[in-house]
Design a protein around this nucleic acid. Structure first.
Lengths: 175, 175
DNA sequence: AAGTTACGTCAGTCTTGTTGACATTCCAAG
DNA sequence: CTTGGAATGTCAACAAGACTGACGTAACTT
């Protein structure tokens, strides 16, 4: 409320023992801006490909996670993407209509739809993924292995708890 | 094109000298997912505040950078935010109408509009920023100082070149 | 048989982005 | 002084992608 609220929430001087990180507002703001600008770069390359094909980021996300968790159900995908079923359905309908995604009725529970990429879907997913990985690989190489470890640690700590669990549960389908 | 395209773009075995980072697709995919999930967390707290006040992320971004670069022109803000003037104008008009932002005609060049936060604008900016910094601070503390340095390095390497220059040019207005 | 779950869909709204067209204002160059 | 171009603002139309609410159907559970 007062003009010094941005100063008041600073920690006191670092204590003697294990140092509490002393983080200025300025350092934190630079981190916030870095996230903002980096995310733009992160999505730029796939966005260009998607625009050519009249798809959007929403389609990319669906393709990514269907590839990552083949046979996943609609509800599960919903939970991971954090959108409503109406929103996801619009995207899935398009992907199914254009033959990129296949929806199979569940064997044990016939209410469920299990989602898989078709060969065409897998091809597009790979194209998008390669563009995004190329930038990620370049950034990782430029920064070095220790930086990469730190990068991953901070990102993980920034996630909501629930999401972090889902993140950890993701495994390489080709593993 | 073939099924092994995802393997073909791997680097060869690490050379003898300074090791080229060996990065598997799986490692890169986890990084991509970490960015995706972390960005959701990154925006979650301010989003909740904004929703209460019937503002959106676009308003937050404008407030953030006007605070960061007081007196900046509309064109400059446009370049940083990477949107069209029509899109930004809608947001700015609302912020000005509600007394959060002031638009001053340039002294030397009267075509330019120099943007400043009003006290009310500064208060909201601080509220949003504090929510976002709290999460960032917690993540930084959890990960530790070395991780933070790595985090920043990787994010910087991920930006487009032009944007990275603008990022470096940002200075604390309270310097 | 009744209730719940999973999914799909229709209809309507909102934010935030886009283009295109056009007006205004003003600086600067001829 | 006139003209061209730059910076800004505004109107209109549109689209993607998110949302809520309501409803229907099929299938599983109790």
């Amino acid at each position: 409320m007062t003009d010094r609220s941005s100063l008041r929430d600073q920690p006191p001087a670092p204590s003697g023992g294990e140092a509490l990180l002393f983080l200025t507002d300025e350092q934190l703001r630079k981190g916030i801006e870095a996230m903002f600008f980096a995310y733009r770069g992160f999505t730029a390359d796939p966005d260009r490909i998607l625009a050519e094909l009249d798809y959007g980021r929403a389609h990319h996300r669906a393709l990514h996670f269907i590839n990552r968790m083949p046979g996943t159900t609609v509800s599960n995908l919903l939970a991971i993407l954090g959108v409503t079923k109406q929103s996801l359905n619009r995207v899935l309908r398009a992907l199914i209509a254009e033959g990129l995604v296949e929806s199979r009725i569940g064997r044990t529970d016939r209410r469920e739809r299990h989602l898989h990429l078709t060969p065409a879907g897998a091809t597009l997913e790979r194209r998008l993924s390669q563009a995004q990985r190329a930038r990620m690989r370049a950034a990782y190489r430029a920064a070095g292995p220790d930086a990469v470890a730190g990068f991953r640690q901070v990102l993980e700590a920034m996630m909501d708890d629930e999401i972090r669990h889902q993140y950890h549960a993701l495994r390489d389908p080709r593993g």
